[in-house]
Nucleic acid binder design. Structure first.
Lengths: 407, 407
DNA sequence: CCTATTAATTCGAGCCTCAAAAAAAATCGT
DNA sequence: ACGATTTTTTTTGAGGCTCGAATTAATAGG
């Protein structure tokens, strides 16, 4: 009865630790959990049976099959897929992707809608979102109580709490209270996150060896964005989210950027910058509002076929990116970079110039940082959005300590 | 007897919390501690009497004097100055400052030695340091067992653990294992830290309201350095310490920097950059190795008296600083800056240009960030070094839970 | 069918925090 | 002067939590 507020801290943290070990491991025995969490078997036994009663975990008894030797076989624990579900929404230019994942992360449903955010009112946007979520949810046949959370990935910056979409290249609307709308409508926590942050989170989850403490994911698309991990934590603004890497100044009085400034990295490395330069337009020409990814690929092919202007265009992009990175590497030591998005398909053309700039910078050791490429960004954005939602649910559930006795 | 390794986590953290509340408060009653720590009076009573037995805290009984009304008067607790002492060392160009502080932070002794680090061997450096520490310690009359820690502030970068001085503008030596030397000699933990980080730490300690989660201290001296706090934590390299703000590139093919690169912020804003430009030398001229601070002050006075070249020199420095800051503010939202060092005495001359650059950057909201000035950096470096050492000792002491029963 | 072996649970001890009660140490009022 | 009042601190007992050790469960091998 007495709700102890502080001293259950230990139990809360151990609950979370166990949930996350199981989530990462997929199916693990109690003994393995004990080892991974450096807890005693006794404690793991107590907590995990609580979590099973709560429905968070399930024991998949003798599924091991052909047994593994003598002795009592271990029973594997897994996250219970049916515990709850999350709705994921990825807003892209012109499109809304809605997905439903179960508590184990499996995609249950997925819908694609068209939406021209460039020409839409606040009210329409709100109503459209709600309608499309409802439609997807209803089609899935899940009960309303099964919805635990809504997570949204967007291009643009949100407030630090992830409740409002402050501004986005997708729309002239600003300060859109998306999370409030949906929380009111669906009665569950709703959070927005920047797509680049989600990509970084996905990489961190997929391959924690490679993408652990310090790394960045750079999205090369129409614009240039960055998701940055330092010391294992996503770094974003102090008042708003999103590291605006694309808008770091790399050249005074440089090319004209979408944002109205001159000399942003994006203004030399974004899609519109590539086409602008390749078509011989002046660097101050108004940026195109949209470029088909194919065009970039085509220009890359031209460059590889010996087109000097195309080659120089990508080299210029590489220098812009390198200059920006050099600036960051002056503040924190060089780290691994993942280039993501269709621009990554042309990275071979940017790489020499990029590394050359790094080599000539103060942090010349940065010139041989490891770089990985992921051309298709959508799977990563989805995955990051999903894992983010699930980890938040885990934390919520870990907090609900001592509720086993009731139901 | 059974040394519990994990489950004492709670007690350990509460011990630390109490020590730090007392350290910050100076003299606080148990009741006030309970409130500040959101612990019950019972717990505070137990822990604080333990800490008194250990000698960490002392009860200063009825020192309140003329009483404060009815009821049992509260007894104030303070950090016990005699609990232990720390040696602080600040290495400046040509000089070694050694100080001894007691556990309450009071400076007990302070010595100043000359040392030309530019022309010294590893062995000489080691022997000199040890001799000077010994000399200062012996003169203080303290017992050997009273030494708990040695903290060292330096210009330059250290490894992430603060054990080695990787490189410093003060000396051609590199990778100097300073901490190992002194730990071996004195048998206590030794840590090195970058002077700018120490300045930032000092500001954070002095005025946590103003300098809390996100701010930077920028040292304007011969070079330009930065101590950066993000989310309440010092940010420095992932493999080495020190944010090399001064070596961020702000202009491709710009002025020649000490480091050999071109276009570093320092190469337009450091002392040597000011004198170089004011004396009409080309921006590629080899940097002076030392500039008397008075010279900078004199050039500033000339600028204020109407000297156009002097004014432009400082404006140029302001632009360099502004460009660097704009880059950082693209990654994390704008925050408060403290300019420290004799360069801050000329900040009025740099400010318009600096704010102008910020205003024209993508993060134009950054143009009115609050800026504070501290012309004399040494008190801040010392304070930061001292509080850093004491907080580390606190943490060590908090770990020694359950040792009350023995002595 | 019994034994060896490994996994998981149960049990009791030892900490830790907390609320409530008790003790301590002042002032106030008559 | 001295008990009543007030405020702070300590003591006491209860309830949680984790852990080691003992116990129970579940399998393979002979």
């Amino acid at each position: 009865m007495t709700i102890v507020l502080r001293s259950d801290d230990m139990r809360r943290r151990n609950r979370l630790r166990i949930i996350q070990i199981v989530r990462r491991g997929g199916t693990v025995s109690r003994g393995e959990i004990a080892q991974a969490a450096t807890l005693s078997p006794a404690t793991v036994s107590t907590i995990s049976s609580e979590l099973i009663v709560e429905g968070v975990l399930i024991a998949r008894s003798a599924e091991t099959g052909p047994s593994a030797g003598r002795g009592r076989p271990s029973t594997s624990l897994s996250v219970n897929p049916q515990f709850c579900h999350a709705v994921l929404i990825i807003l892209k230019i012109g499109a809304v992707n809605v997905a439903i994942v179960d508590y184990a992360g499996t995609v249950i449903a997925r819908e694609h809608f068209h939406l021209d955010m460039a020409n839409v009112t606040m009210e329409d946007f709100r109503d459209t979102l709600i309608t499309e979520i409802r439609q997807t949810w209803n089609a899935s046949g899940l009960a309303a109580g099964q919805l635990a959370r809504i997570s949204i990935g967007i291009q643009g910056t949100t407030d630090i709490a992830g409740l409002r979409l402050l501004r986005s290249p997708m729309t002239p609307l600003t300060d859109i209270p998306v999370a409030f709308w949906l929380e009111e409508e669906f009665g569950v926590p709703v959070r927005l996150a920047n797509d680049c942050d989600l990509i970084a989170r996905a990489l961190n989850w997929r391959d924690p060896e490679r993408y652990s403490d310090n790394f960045a994911a750079i999205l090369l698309a129409h614009g240039v964005g960055m998701g940055l991990f330092l010391r294992g934590q996503i770094i974003n603004g102090t008042r708003s989210s999103g590291t605006e890497f694309g808008h770091m100044l790399h050249q005074a009085d440089g090319a004209l950027c979408r944002c109205g400034s001159n000399g942003c990295i994006e203004a030399d490395a974004g899609d519109y910058a590539i086409t602008r330069r390749y078509r011989g337009k002046p660097v101050n020409a108004t940026p195109q509002s949209h470029v088909e990814p194919v065009e970039i690929i085509r220009i890359a092919e031209a460059a590889r076929a010996g087109d000097a202007l195309a080659a120089e265009t990508f080299a210029s992009a590489g220098r812009a990116l390198g200059t920006g990175l050099a600036g960051i590497f002056a503040l924190v030591d060089p780290f691994r970079i993942a280039f993501v998005g269709h621009g990554a398909a042309a990275f071979d053309l940017m790489e020499p110039a990029l590394r050359e700039v790094l080599k000539n910078s103060n942090a010349s050791a940065a010139s041989n940082i490891p770089i990985d490429l992921y051309v298709d960004e959508m799977p990563l954005v989805f995955e990051g959005c999903g894992i983010g939602a699930l980890l938040e649910i885990d934390a919520t559930q870990a907090d609900r300590v001592g509720e086993t006795s009731k139901p």
